[in-house]
Design a binder for these strands. Structure first.
Length: 650
RNA sequence: GCCGACGUAGCUCAGUGGUAGAGCAACUGAUUCGUAAUCAGUAGGUCCACAGUUCAAAUCUGUGCGUCGGCACCA
């Protein structure tokens, strides 16, 4: 006698078990048509599930956020059916819904190529058109294994074998096609609709392990309808326009070339941007009580052996040798061991702690070729690296201080939000279990104190300690770790860092490894995409272009440019013999933030016509005011006095 | 590193075995013009590299390098 509570708090009673389908029909034909699945006591299940006891039921329709996940998951099944129909002998493995879409991994000798997608997608549309009913079936475990093995589906059989014995094995049937699946699904393949598209093919290791076979993955995107699909595809196109590699070219910021794979050639414009960011960081670190140092590029192998890097990362280090000496020097992949060496010079007192040692450390790492990505993932990069030598008690307050600094800096760069991941002990790792317990507990406590919400990232810590990762997102939705904070008991131990405590005895400091931008290269890449090249004035490599309308204004234009330059602004003068339309277009495409146009009128009256990038308005301003205003605007955020120049006339 | 695609002028790209192309940019000349492309002309290429097939290779094959999309990796 189930009593079913609906979202409006009304209750319906039934004599016996009733399926969601029947319940929806009972409530009304509109709902019966719209319901795709239901939430039974909060759990998403098939509409065909019988409700046997008192429960609350919420129907999921196309409009609900949950619908997207159902559509995408079902689309993955449709993809698999289409592939097996077109390419018999292909084995299915797994195919989940993901952000914006779905994928399915197939095992076959010949991987799929882009050219296969059109036919597969057409077949998918056919299957959606067929409206095959999804039917759930609970099966015996051994029988299921035999069933899939008989079909030659070794991967599926393997998946079932690896499921815990307690797990109910369910199959989902759609027409002739069957898949092992936990569900839930919608009513039929028709519910997928036509708002999907196959996007790309890729290789992917079985179970994400590079020692396993490489499967052939097909990615698709799926939405509620064509309109949503179109707007997603449009968003992707827009995102592509802000790709840092493209804008890097357009703004002449940097280039990469074969002779120095994975290292950036910064051009004058890009280097201006870099230096602006570096100068800003140097001021912020200085104000936050860090001391800047500089340590060697080439360091003998023995130090890396002591630190444990040789053992863990030797394959990823650039090694240099010289003819006359039997030595292996490594280009430093990180600065921390060197910082410990500085710490160890002389005798340290507890009074010096926390000691915050910072370096814009130029590092080299031999990244796998497939990992390289524009300037975001390179083999030579500069970290805004620092190490805080402190006591156990100082871990939490130092973490809180760090997060406050990081948030403030991200905000100044225009990032209002970021995600935090907590990565705990990996395998293999250095150090003993007690230290790992201490380190993880300290970091958790620090997060609590600093009021940080994080997601757990199990087993992903550094080999010497747990870490927080601060993650920013690029234009096309890829996540990049930028900031980090790591608690380390291991390196101070290995490299023998110690200080004299209040008690006169020697103690081990803890080391907090921390970075905010992470690598300048990566951060600037993200920054370029964040602003789509339209930097705020303080970061823009070229801040003002003075452009003339007639050559009679050339002399005045030069005086205007000089006046801007005198305040430190980066100014270009465009006296070329082109129409003003062409000049506006050219400098707009180059993302110059301010265009100061001067013609006869301005020359006669001592004015400039200011035009902002992205706007169409022009503003006629007396030269001295324009200079004062832009100079004030170009002041980096950390140097800005509260409300420097009244914005009234701006 | 693995799977797939791609590599042609400074840039974006066309060119399926028979004399290497376009637009933009550059350069020269004309034009002095009021806020996203003025007109005309000129010049510009070891078609990523090496090897092979062929009478003939940008084009077909192999190897290498690089780039891109994923996977794996990311101290």
């Amino acid at each position: 006698m189930p009593a079913i509570t609906l979202p409006d708090q009304s209750v319906r009673r039934f004599d016996g078990p009733v399926t969601g389908t029947a319940l929806a029909a009972e409530i009304g034909p509109g709902l019966a048509r719209a319901a795709l699945a239901m939430k039974l006591d909060g759990k998403l299940v098939d509409l065909a599930t019988p409700i046997e006891q008192d429960a609350s039921v919420v129907f999921v329709t196309r409009r609900d956020p949950d619908a997207l996940e159902l559509i995408r998951h079902d689309a993955a099944h449709v993809l698999a059916e289409a592939v097996q129909e077109l390419h018999p002998g292909t084995q299915v493995t797994i195919g989940p819904a993901i952000e914006n879409g779905f994928y399915y991994d197939f095992a076959r000798n010949e991987p799929f190529t882009l050219e296969d997608l059109a036919a597969i997608e057409a077949k998918m549309r056919e299957i959606v058109g067929r409206g095959e009913k999804f039917e759930r079936e609970v099966v015996d475990r051994d029988e299921a294994i035999r069933f899939f093995q008989a079909k030659g589906e070794k991967y599926k059989a393997q998946l079932i074998e690896d499921l815990p014995a307690s797990e109910t094995i369910t199959l989902y049937r759609q027409g002739e096609w069957v898949d092992l699946c936990r569900g839930p699904h919608m009513r039929s393949t028709a519910d997928v609709g036509q708002g999907f598209k196959l996007m790309k093919v890729a290789g992917a290791y079985w179970r994400g392990d590079h020692r396993n076979a490489m499967l052939s993955r097909i990615y698709g995107t799926a939405w509620r309808d064509q309109k949503e699909l179109d707007s997603y595809l449009h968003m992707l196109e827009e995102a592509e326009k802000r790709d840092h590699r493209r804008i890097g070219k357009e703004m002449d910021l940097f280039h990469l070339q074969e002779e120095a794979t994975g290292s950036v050639f910064w051009h004058p414009n890009g280097w201006k941007l870099y230096l602006a960011a570096e100068a800003y960081m140097r001021r912020r670190l200085d104000a936050a009580g860090y001391q800047e140092v500089r340590t060697p590029q080439l360091v003998d192998r023995s130090l890396w052996e002591k630190s444990g890097h040789w053992e863990n990362y030797r394959d990823h280090m650039f090694i240099a040798r010289v003819e006359d000496e039997d030595k292996h020097l490594a280009l430093k992949p990180m600065s921390c061991p060197c910082h410990v060496l500085i710490f160890r010079q002389g005798i340290r007192s507890y009074r010096e702690l926390p000691l915050r040692m910072a370096e814009f450390g130029s590092c080299h790492r031999y990244e796998p070729s497939g990992a390289l990505h524009g300037i975001m993932r390179v083999r030579q990069f500069t970290q805004d690296d620092a190490h805080i030598f402190c006591t156990d008690e100082q871990i939490a307050p130092e973490t809180a201080r760090f997060v406050a600094l990081l948030s403030s800096i991200y905000r100044d760069f225009g990032f209002d939000s970021f995600r935090v991941k907590f990565s705990d002990r990996p395998t293999p790792r250095a150090g003993n279990e007690e230290d790992w317990d201490r380190a993880e507990a300290a970091l958790r406590e620090a997060c609590r104190l600093a009021d940080i919400e994080y997601e757990l990232n199990p087993g992903e810590g550094a080999f010497y300690g747990p870490k927080l990762e601060f993650v920013l997102r690029d234009a096309i939705g890829r996540d990049w770790q930028c900031g980090t904070l790591q608690v380390d008991y291991v390196l101070p131990e290995r490299l023998g860092a110690e200080y004299v405590g209040e008690d006169g005895a020697r103690h081990r400091p803890v080391m907090l490894h921390r970075a905010i931008l992470g690598s300048f290269e990566r951060f600037l890449g993200i920054l370029i995409e964040q602003y789509a090249g339209r930097f705020p004035l303080w970061l823009a490599p070229v801040q003002v272009v003075v452009a003339t309308i007639v050559s009679d204004a050339d002399g005045y234009a030069e005086r205007v440019a000089d006046a801007f330059r005198a305040t430190g602004l980066e100014v270009r003068l465009d006296l070329s013999n082109q129409k003003i339309n062409a000049k506006v277009r050219e400098h707009s495409l180059a993302h110059v933030p301010v265009l100061a146009v001067v013609g006869r009128k301005e020359a006669d009256s001592g004015m400039v016509a200011l035009r902002r990038l992205g706007g169409e308005a022009q503003e006629l301003v007396p030269l001295d005011q324009a200079v004062a205003r832009l100079a004030a605007e170009a002041v980096p955020p950390d140097l800005r006095k509260a409300d420097p120049v009244p914005a009234a006339q701006a």
